[in-house]
Structure formats: C-alpha cells, structure tokens
C-alpha cells in the first residue's frame, strides 16, 4: 500500500493517458489485490526509474549530474520494454517570458532525449514537445514550485 500511495503523489503530473486504469489486479478470495503496475505503463516507468522527470536550474537546459541517473534508468527501462514509445515534455517555470520559455522547454526536452539516446534508446522511439511555462506541475509562486516546474517529463504514449 505504501508503494501505491507514493505513486499517487508522483501522479500529480497531468498524465495524458491517466484516465484508464494502468494497474493490474488479480482476483482473490478477499477481493482485488494489487500486484504492481502494468508492464510498459507510466507507473511502471516511475517504479522502475524512480521518477518520470528530471529537473533543471534556472534558465538552464543542461542535464544536472544528480538528474542523469534518472534518465539512464529510464533508458534501461525502455530497453526492457522495447515496444514502448515516449514523448519527452519540456517545461519552464513562470519566471520568464512566454515565447522564450517555449523555446527553452524544447531545448530541455531535447537535452533529456539526447541522454536517453546516448544510453542506447533508438531516437525514433522518442518524440519531444514543449509547453513552456504554460503547464506547471506545482501551482505556487515560489522557488519551491519553480524548481518542480523546470522539468522534462518522459511520458509513455
């Protein structure tokens, strides 16, 4: 149950495909028992790589040393789930102008994609998109929220 709760928090991300259940259940005498995320799902990616996202410093698009292992684990998961394709979404915090942040988000998505490719994932399996500052994950107007919003999110398609 602990594991599920944690997934719920991570699930703050507006997951594009989140409307359908991605958790496999098995019928037992007592009712539904969770056996783990469905292989190849967003939840499976998060459980396997620790996170579906990496974070950036202000106005930066280089992958921080502390974020790189997350992407490498995501790449490993993609190699184990060869049928999966993903879209990397690049985002910026609200402290900037809209058009520049669209381009910055694209550059961040690209930087994350480059690490996935360098870790052995075929480029054709990864598309990118930028939402700039216009789809924040955290809704506050403070440094804590901004740090969560400067991100690239790997989304299973």
């Amino acid at each position: 149950m602990m594991k599920l709760k944690m997934l719920g928090v991570m699930g703050l991300v507006a997951l594009l495909g989140a409307c359908e259940s991605t958790t496999e259940t098995a019928q037992t005498g007592g009712g539904n028992v969770v056996t783990g995320p469905r292989p190849g799902s967003q939840e499976d990616l998060i459980a396997s790589a620790g996170s579906d996202r990496v974070f950036f410093d202000f106005d930066q698009s280089s992958i921080r040393g502390d974020q790189r292992p997350t992407l490498e684990k995501q790449a490993g998961w993609m190699q184990r789930n060869a049928a999966v394709t993903v879209q990397v979404e690049g985002h910026a915090d609200e402290r900037g102008t809209r058009e520049y942040n669209l381009a910055l988000g694209q550059r961040r998505a690209n930087a994350a994609r480059d690490v996935l490719v360098a870790s052995g994932v075929a480029g054709a399996r990864i598309s990118t998109i930028s939402y700039g500052k216009d789809r924040p994950a955290a809704l506050g107007s403070n440094e804590e929220a901004w740090a969560q919003n400067r991100r690239a999110v790997t989304v299973v398609r």
């Binding site: 698009s61 058009e99 381009a103 694209q106 550059r107 690209n110 930087a111 930028s130």
Partner: peptide, 9 residues
C-alpha cells in the same frame, strides 16, 4: 517566426 531544431530556435 521562430522554429526549433535540436536544441536551437
């Protein structure tokens, strides 16, 4: 207009 390719615009 501006167009992105790779990490540039």
């Amino acid at each position: 207009l501006s167009s992105t390719r790779g990490g540039d615009a």
